[in-house]
Simulated scan of single mutants.
Amino acid sequence: MNLIEVSNLSYSVSNQTILNDISFTLKKGEYLNIIGPNGSGKTTLVELITNLIKPTEGTIKINETNIGYLPQKLNLKKNFPITVKEVIKSGVLNTKLLSDENIMKWLKMMGIGELLNEKMHVLSGGQQQRVFIIRTLINEPSILILDEPTSALDPDFREGFNIFLKSLCEKKQITIINVTHDLSELNLKNTKVLYIDKEIKYYGDSINFKELEHGGVSHV
């Protein structure tokens, strides 16, 4: 059974087509990288999937309710006095996951175990991004939707994080949709690629896509 079904999805604003006739399916435990040039509609697509905006045409069916979503940009007011622990707890849906021990487990996993009680505004952009990633992951979602989650992360951590995401698919059967500009992420085995530029240019296996990579695709 498909966990996500996107059928003939289109979205327009003021007679301008943002997305046209997008269709794809994902089963439980599949990993999809969405790529495309700037302005190609990647963020619009995930906003449609997460029901933040409504399609002009087409349908989206999701056979799951526990969905984690990390948007591309998270607004954090300068000098707002909120701690790392408070940010993470604000996203916890299951009280069983609220313990400091559980939060510390995630902080250590993300390499920021010393920051539990730090104020968010004193953290670097990369550290803040790791906190928001934890806030998204801590609920152990069945579907994980990430819009450029590694853009603020250093290259070494980025590589390890991508491997960690892949392990969530393989070991916990979490279905992942990952919007990315980093084509090195397409080297992950047994993952899919959806390459869009307002419409679908390629949908299929990552390895096959890497073999076809030429003629403008490298400008993603």
Score class of each variant (00 low, 15 high):
residue 83 T to I: 01
residue 85 K to N: 15
residue 86 E to F: 02
residue 86 E to P: 06
residue 86 E to V: 09
residue 87 V to A: 10
residue 88 I to V: 13
residue 89 K to Y: 10
residue 89 K to D: 13
residue 92 V to R: 09
residue 93 L to E: 12
residue 93 L to Q: 10
residue 94 N to W: 04
residue 96 K to A: 05
residue 96 K to C: 02
residue 98 L to A: 05
residue 98 L to W: 06
residue 99 S to V: 08
residue 99 S to A: 09
residue 99 S to H: 05
residue 100 D to F: 00
residue 101 E to Y: 09
residue 102 N to V: 12
residue 103 I to K: 07
residue 104 M to F: 04
residue 105 K to L: 06
residue 106 W to E: 10
residue 108 K to L: 12
residue 109 M to P: 00
residue 109 M to N: 12
residue 111 G to N: 11
residue 112 I to W: 04
residue 115 L to H: 12
residue 115 L to R: 08
residue 115 L to I: 12
residue 116 L to R: 02
residue 118 E to L: 00
residue 119 K to F: 08
residue 120 M to Q: 04
residue 120 M to Y: 01
residue 121 H to N: 15
residue 121 H to D: 15
residue 125 G to Q: 08
residue 127 Q to D: 09
residue 128 Q to T: 15
residue 129 Q to L: 07
residue 130 R to Q: 13
residue 132 F to G: 10
residue 133 I to D: 02
residue 134 I to E: 07
residue 134 I to S: 07
residue 136 T to G: 01
residue 137 L to T: 12
residue 137 L to V: 14
residue 138 I to G: 03
residue 138 I to F: 02
residue 139 N to W: 03
residue 139 N to C: 07
residue 140 E to R: 03
residue 140 E to F: 00
residue 141 P to W: 01
residue 143 I to S: 02
residue 144 L to E: 15
residue 144 L to I: 11
residue 144 L to S: 10
residue 147 D to F: 02
residue 147 D to R: 00
residue 147 D to E: 05
residue 147 D to M: 00
residue 150 T to V: 11
residue 150 T to M: 11
residue 150 T to P: 14
residue 152 A to F: 07
residue 155 P to N: 08
residue 156 D to H: 02
residue 157 F to E: 14
residue 158 R to C: 12
residue 159 E to L: 07
residue 159 E to S: 05
residue 160 G to V: 11
residue 161 F to E: 15
residue 162 N to C: 12
residue 162 N to A: 08
residue 163 I to Y: 04
residue 164 F to E: 11
residue 164 F to S: 07
residue 165 L to N: 08
residue 168 L to H: 06
residue 169 C to L: 10
residue 169 C to N: 09
residue 170 E to F: 01
residue 170 E to T: 15
residue 170 E to R: 06
residue 170 E to M: 02
residue 171 K to W: 06
residue 173 Q to C: 06
residue 174 I to M: 14
residue 175 T to C: 14
residue 175 T to M: 13
residue 176 I to A: 10
residue 177 I to R: 04
residue 178 N to Q: 12
residue 178 N to H: 11
residue 179 V to M: 06
residue 180 T to L: 08
residue 180 T to S: 14
residue 180 T to C: 05
residue 183 L to V: 06
residue 183 L to K: 05
residue 184 S to E: 14
residue 185 E to F: 06
residue 186 L to I: 07
residue 187 N to I: 05
residue 188 L to R: 03
residue 189 K to G: 04
residue 189 K to M: 04
residue 189 K to A: 09
residue 190 N to S: 10
residue 191 T to I: 10
residue 192 K to S: 09
residue 193 V to W: 04
residue 193 V to R: 01
residue 193 V to Y: 01
residue 193 V to L: 05
residue 195 Y to H: 14
residue 195 Y to A: 13
residue 197 D to T: 02
residue 197 D to W: 00
residue 199 E to D: 09
residue 200 I to V: 13
residue 200 I to Y: 04
residue 202 Y to T: 07
residue 203 Y to P: 01
residue 203 Y to I: 13
residue 203 Y to G: 01
residue 204 G to C: 03
residue 206 S to V: 07
residue 206 S to K: 06
